[in-house]
Amino acid sequence: MGIIGSQLKPFATTSYKDGAFVEVTDKDVLGKWAVFFFYPADFTFVCPTELEDLADKYDELKAMGVEVYAVSTDTHFSHKAWHDSSPAISKIKYHMLGDQNHVISNNFNTLREGVGLADRGTFVVDPAGVLQLVEVTPEGVGRNAAELVRKIKAAKYWQEHPGQVCPAKWEEGAETLAPSIDLVGKI
Score class of each variant (00 low, 15 high):
7 Q>I: 05
115 V>Y: 00
134 V>C: 04
93 K>C: 05
176 T>C: 11
102 H>F: 09
8 L>P: 01
134 V>I: 13
33 W>N: 03
4 I>R: 11
97 L>I: 11
148 L>W: 07
86 S>A: 07
54 L>T: 07
165 V>K: 07
23 E>G: 15
54 L>W: 05
69 Y>R: 04
113 E>P: 02
120 R>I: 02
64 M>F: 03
139 E>Y: 10
179 P>L: 11
133 L>F: 12
142 G>W: 03
89 I>D: 01
35 V>R: 07
23 E>T: 15
169 K>C: 13
166 C>R: 03
161 H>G: 05
186 K>G: 07
178 A>K: 15
66 V>D: 08
71 V>A: 04
88 A>L: 14
122 T>C: 06
31 G>M: 05
65 G>E: 08
153 K>M: 11
164 Q>H: 12
51 L>P: 08
171 E>T: 11
66 V>M: 07
107 N>S: 01
135 E>K: 08
148 L>Q: 03
106 N>G: 04
182 D>M: 12
91 K>R: 13
67 E>I: 10
96 M>L: 13
10 P>R: 13
65 G>A: 12
116 G>T: 01
104 I>D: 00
177 L>P: 10
174 A>F: 13
98 G>E: 03
79 H>D: 06
177 L>C: 06
70 A>M: 10
157 Y>K: 15
153 K>F: 06
151 K>H: 12
72 S>K: 01
82 W>H: 02
50 E>A: 03
46 V>D: 09
163 G>L: 13
150 R>E: 05
147 E>Q: 14
165 V>S: 00
141 V>I: 15
35 V>L: 12
145 A>N: 10
13 T>E: 10
65 G>D: 12
116 G>W: 02
136 V>M: 09
167 P>Q: 02
163 G>C: 04
7 Q>E: 15
65 G>L: 11
137 T>G: 01
117 L>R: 01
10 P>S: 15
157 Y>V: 06
80 K>P: 06
56 D>N: 14
148 L>S: 08
151 K>C: 11
66 V>K: 10
59 D>P: 06
148 L>M: 11
12 A>M: 12
1 M>T: 14
